[in-house]
């Protein structure tokens, strides 16, 4: 029940951001400054989750090379940088994590 509310809430706010301008705007567009600010949102959000999932996998920070998650993170960053491919990045991250677990 609570989960249904979560999904409907997410759907409602998503539909709002997509539908409101289409319903209201005919010729006008957003102010350019606001548009340029919005473009930086994805990088900002994605970074938080990537950083916390890598450096604090269980909620506590493990900022040492003894954490296998760090090795997974390093492998993922390298492959993401070289290939730009999300699926290869996931595979590399998991491989780095497994190697870290096996070697440490």
């Amino acid at each position: 029940m609570a989960l249904a509310l979560l999904i409907l809430g997410m759907a409602a706010v998503t539909f709002l951001t997509r539908g409101l301008p289409i319903a209201i705007l005919s010729r006008r567009t957003l102010p350019a400054g606001l548009g340029r600010w919005l473009r930086h949102i994805p990088v900002a959000v994605f970074t938080v989750i990537a950083v916390q999932g890598t450096l604090a996998p269980t909620g506590e920070f493990h900022l040492s090379l003894g954490s296998p998650y760090i090795w997974g993170g390093i492998a993922a960053v390298v492959v993401a940088w070289r290939t730009g491919n999300v699926f290869l990045t996931i595979l590399a991250g998991l491989a780095g994590l497994w190697l870290g677990r096996g070697c440490l």
Partner: peptide, 29 residues
């Protein structure tokens, strides 16, 4: 459980193409 953070690494790293994106990423981190 690491697949999700790895997904986000794969989403964010290719977007680091200019100084503004690097600054956003660094501050966010």
């Amino acid at each position: 459980d690491f697949a999700l953070p790895a997904t986000f690494i794969g989403l964010v790293v290719p977007q680091l193409r200019d100084r503004a994106a690097w600054a956003t990423c660094a501050v966010s981190a």
